[in-house]
């Protein structure tokens, strides 16, 4: 009965209010988790519930952070790793997509290469690290290669299967206009696979970080991965955790940027 007394406009406003409250509740919970995690960490460290040497404490990390921010070493190391990761991500993703396109182009080639791709995909790519480093020298190049090689095969496999799954009626439409294979790829296959490509981008953001950090473990004299190894060697776990938090921050930003790209590429206002 009460419902009937409200006008359409009021009902709509009520609905909007409800949505806003729900959104606020979610943000509040996320905030509570964040605060209690770091609060609990600080508290248990102060009260000696956990080993201060190994787990450090947020306040110590914060001190190190401000220190490094002022003397510029934060940006110096982040810059190196960030550059390597982004380069590795782009290189790995783009070569994966190009490889997938080649496989789509030649059915025979894809059948021939199939077992090799499966084995390469299962192979732990970071195990190739030592070889890459010896071949390309201990520097930027081999670390970028590590970031790329870890994602290239899985990108190829996922994007290739996305290419294959595009509804053949789209190409039928194009072929009825006399489209060439390249036109079919450009107009139908490639744009139809954007959603799958975006999900591989999201996975690859994480993978590139793994490749680059492992690469830095092995050779680097600078970068966040280097700081982690260095911190481990001198038993400075504040430095290790500080590097980890910086990595988490940048990884989140990269993921966020991929999401922006997704919104721009996939024109579907339904979402």
């Amino acid at each position: 009965m009460k419902q009937n007394q409200l006008s359409d406009d009021q009902l709509f406003k009520q609905y909007q209010k409800k949505i806003n409250i729900n959104r606020l509740k979610i943000i509040l919970w996320q905030f509570v988790i964040f605060i209690s995690f770091f609060g609990l960490w600080e508290l248990s460290s102060q009260l000696g519930w956990i080993d201060k040497l190994i787990f450090s404490s947020p306040s110590k990390i914060w001190m190190l952070f401000t220190e490094n921010l002022v003397d510029g070493s934060l940006w110096f190391h982040s810059r190196v790793t960030l550059f390597e990761t982004i380069a590795g991500f782009i290189l790995g993703t783009i070569s994966g997509i190009i490889l997938a396109a080649i496989l789509w182009w030649s059915d025979r080639l894809s059948k021939i290469l199939d077992p090799y791709l499966v084995v390469l995909n299962a192979l732990p790519k970071v195990a190739l690290g030592p070889i890459i480093i010896v071949a390309l020298g201990p520097g930027y190049l081999s670390i970028i290669m590590m970031g790329a090689i870890i994602s290239v095969i899985v990108t190829t496999l996922v994007v290739y299967s996305a290419f294959k799954e595009v509804d053949s009626n789209f190409t039928k439409v194009l072929k009825s206009f006399g489209a060439t294979k390249w036109q079919c790829f450009k107009e139908a296959i490639f744009p139809a696979s954007f959603p799958s490509m975006i999900s591989t981008f999201k996975v690859n953001v994480g993978l590139s970080w793994v490749g680059v950090i492992v690469g830095e473990f092995l050779v680097a004299g600078k970068g966040l991965g280097y700081l982690i190894v260095y911190g481990f060697q001198v038993f400075n776990f504040t430095l290790v955790l500080y590097s980890l938090l910086v990595i988490a921050f940048f990884a989140a930003i990269m993921y966020f940027l991929v999401e922006k790209l997704e919104k721009w590429l996939i024109k579907n206002p339904d979402n």
Binding site: L174, F177, A188, A192, K267
Partner: peptide, 30 residues
């Protein structure tokens, strides 16, 4: 081939193109 028009069971309009761009896909291909 360019003298033939083909209509399918479903429209198969390309979801990432506007209606006008969809209508112009044939001339674009040719």
């Amino acid at each position: 081939k360019s003298d033939i028009g083909y209509m399918l069971q479903q429209d198969y309009l390309f979801p990432w193109k506007t209606i006008l761009d969809n209508a112009l896909i044939g001339p674009q291909i040719q």
